[in-house]
């Protein structure tokens, strides 16, 4: 075992000991999940059409219910979701450990994430795109009898959707040993279509609207009809900014002489633009981290209690003793 591996093992053991210690102090309040059983009675006469849904609940509600009736079955401790909270917490720590350096725990989390997420989006793509937008259009009766009984009875067969099906099959042809070139046709179709679409929509939406919004008088008057210096200055800066940035983007001229100076001004404008966007984002990013730490220290370990829900659970428990 080399030095770095030894360090990791030690860190891991320290972490495990700390968590175990935390559990010994108040075992009942650490990372447990509770559910509320909601019976679903879809069909009175058929027993097969009755089942129970388990919605997220809280320890407070569970304690209160037990206090009222020790044999109640409405609020339950959920073993699977408790395991879930623990797994989520461990994975969170595994990922954050990457900030120190790459390590087997991060690799483990990364491998799981790739597998789970790739499959997740495939499942979403199948159930929310292929089924309603391909099968549902080409064979609405079949889809209604199978997975989407709520599909409108008026839904007609839309033969136009054969196009994406055929394009899709051509695309998959690349897997066959011969004639893989045919898969270039759907690619060419898609690229052609979207080039045309983006060309015209960008000119319409971005190009024209940006010019339109850029047209403003440099001589502003306020509501009383007198000259408004600050508003006017604002518009002067705006137009100088836009024009100098445009000069920066010119490809035909080297950035020398007057063009160079104007382009330099353009760069400064853009740097201020970028700085503004940078500053604007920082708080949001820190908030994201705060949410993760809150999950670890509140939902999982209860070392902090910002919303007071743990304290509430403790109070609700007092009656049980």
């Amino acid at each position: 075992m080399n030095k770095s591996n030894r360090l990791w093992v030690i860190l891991f053991i320290i972490g495990a000991v700390l968590v175990a210690g935390r559990m010994l102090i108040s075992q009942s309040l650490i990372g447990k999940a509770y559910v509320q059983a909601v019976p679903v009675n879809a069909d009175e006469e058929n027993e097969d059409h009755k089942w129970t849904l388990y919605e997220q609940s809280s320890q407070t509600k569970f304690n209160e219910a037990v206090l009222e009736d020790p044999n109640q079955t409405k609020y339950l401790f959920s073993f699977s979701r408790t395991i879930g909270v623990w797994i989520a917490a461990l994975l969170t720590i595994f990922v954050l450990s990457f900030l120190i350096r790459d390590n087997p725990l991060y690799k483990f989390a990364e491998s799981i994430f790739i597998g789970i997420s790739a499959a997740y989006w495939m499942v979403v793509g199948f159930w929310s795109t292929v089924v309603p937008n391909l099968f549902g259009k080409l064979s609405p009766d079949m889809v209604r009898d199978w997975a989407m009984p709520g599909l409108g009875i008026d839904e007609r067969v839309e033969l136009m959707y054969i196009v994406p099906l055929v394009l899709g099959l051509m695309l998959l042809w690349i897997l066959s040993p011969k004639g893989g070139w045919i898969s270039r046709w759907p690619t060419a179709f898609i690229i052609g279509v979207f080039c045309g679409l983006r060309l015209i929509t960008f000119i319409h939406a971005d190009f024209l609207s940006q010019i339109r919004n850029g047209i403003a008088p440099l001589w502003m008057v306020d509501s009383s009809g007198s000259f408004d210096f600050w508003e006017s200055l604002r518009n002067v800066f705006l137009i100088i900014g836009v024009l100098s940035c445009l000069v920066y983007f010119f490809f035909s001229f080297e950035h020398k002489g007057i063009i160079g100076k104007t382009a330099k001004l353009g760069i400064w404008f853009m740097m201020i633009t970028f700085g503004a966007a940078f500053g604007y984002t920082v708080m949001g990013r820190i908030a994201l981290l705060a949410i993760r730490l809150e999950f670890l220290f509140d939902d999982w370990l209860w070392l902090i209690d910002p919303t007071g829900k743990r304290l509430e659970a403790v109070i609700s428990m007092l009656g049980l003793f």
Binding site: F207, G241, L246, F249, F269
Partner: peptide, 25 residues
């Protein structure tokens, strides 16, 4: 800063992007 500089810079960048998009397409 947001209403003047940020707007001016973004406006020029967006116009450039639209021109670039049109040309590449």
């Amino acid at each position: 800063l947001m209403t003047v500089f940020n707007t001016a810079g973004n406006r020029a960048i967006m116009i450039g992007i639209a021109l670039g998009t049109a040309s590449v397409s």
